[in-house]
Design a protein around this nucleic acid. Structure first.
Lengths: 201, 201
DNA sequence: ATCGTAGTGGACCACAGGGTCCAGACTGTG
DNA sequence: CACAGTCTGGACCCTGTGGTCCACTACGAT
């Protein structure tokens, strides 16, 4: 998509639409989010929705996904690109939980979006795969640093540990959502980080 | 709901509808499952759908949820009601993975259903909460047995361990789905069971 | 045999919701 | 100022889909 001319005003409107849609999806799911409710929430018109997202709802959802993905990654900075010490891991964990807390809803924007639409939208599935892969690789990188620093067992597979941590996050959120409490997420996450802690201490 | 008269033939049709709907939901999500596709797959008519599920689609989905819930629990028998030895845990784990494998799709019928519809259907959310609670309690019971048998640390909180295990299952499935492989699930699950193993060995 | 009830078929309805169109207002650049 | 292109409003269309209705059949009981 080579960018067609877009003014500051236009960009703001577009962004407003994306964020409002993201909130609605988080609160009511993709199915519970209609173009009409988005239109109402953003004080826009149908034509604007299609002006900025010619591909319609599916394109809008994909844009929301990339936006939320950026937010999620940004929230973990700068710690996620360090992770060379146990203390850095602690800070990363705190920042992540803080991010989810700020959403006001115990759900991963990316994860829940994926489980809802990946079945029917191949593009979205690919995006989800890519997101998870880079996230996983970044964590694995941190594990490798810990190994290099001699803090933990060097024979362990960083990729595997990273996957276990991600699974703990996603699964923890699944349980936190109905319980409306952070503790399942924190318990799962801490448990997954335990091996790193044990060895580092 | 006092049961109205229902013959064997009727019960069979009803069950056929439930199972077919379950498969479609697992494959295409709730949104991707319409009454028409269910009708086609089961060779029934609209009127039958509403004859057996007067509450319409939402009632049908709830019935599917309870059915899948029963299946999920049944698949873990008899091990899940033992769990007094490490060996029993091993067998339980194998049975569970086997169950998910048999679905042909790396997703938890209960979990994915919940993340899709719990937001809009309070009844379904309550059902999901109840399912998770009993599942969790049953696992916690097993942990308690391990503690009583002196296999593991008695100061650990069984409920917490149970939640961590459930989170590993749900999260592992989230990652297994796009990767189309059992290993994320198995890695997450084994990692969560590690504490039990360590002490039991 | 007949009668009542469960079971079935399929036409039909209503409406939500995604998507289209066009006219008009705003904006910034020559 | 003029004009080109962006931005916006809102009426409109149309398909998909949940849900209703009614007539007809199958079948068990008395």
């Amino acid at each position: 998509m080579e960018e067609t001319k877009i003014t500051a005003r236009g960009r703001a409107t577009r962004q407003r639409i994306i964020e409002a849609t993201g909130e609605q999806i988080l609160a009511a799911g993709i199915g519970g989010t209609t173009l009409d409710t988005v239109r109402a929430a953003t004080l826009t018109s149908k034509s604007q929705l299609f002006h900025y997202f010619p591909g319609g709802k599916s394109e809008l959802v994909r844009e929301v996904a990339t936006w939320e993905g950026q937010q999620l990654l940004a929230a973990q900075e700068p710690f996620i690109h360090d992770l060379s010490t146990w203390d850095s891991w602690i800070q990363w964990r705190a920042a992540l939980v803080e991010y989810y807390l700020g959403l006001g809803r115990w759900a991963c924007p990316i994860g829940s979006l994926a489980t809802q639409a990946a079945l029917t939208d191949p593009d979205l599935e690919a995006f989800f795969n890519a997101s998870m892969a880079t996230w996983r690789d970044t964590l694995a990188e941190g594990v490798t640093k810990m190994q290099a620093g001699g803090h933990i067992d060097r024979t362990a597979d960083p990729q595997r540990i990273a996957v276990v941590i991600l699974a703990a996050i996603q699964g923890g959120l699944v349980l936190s959502q109905p319980m409306r409490s952070a503790w399942p997420l924190e318990a799962a996450l801490d448990s997954a980080l335990e091996p790193l802690h044990q060895a580092a201490a």
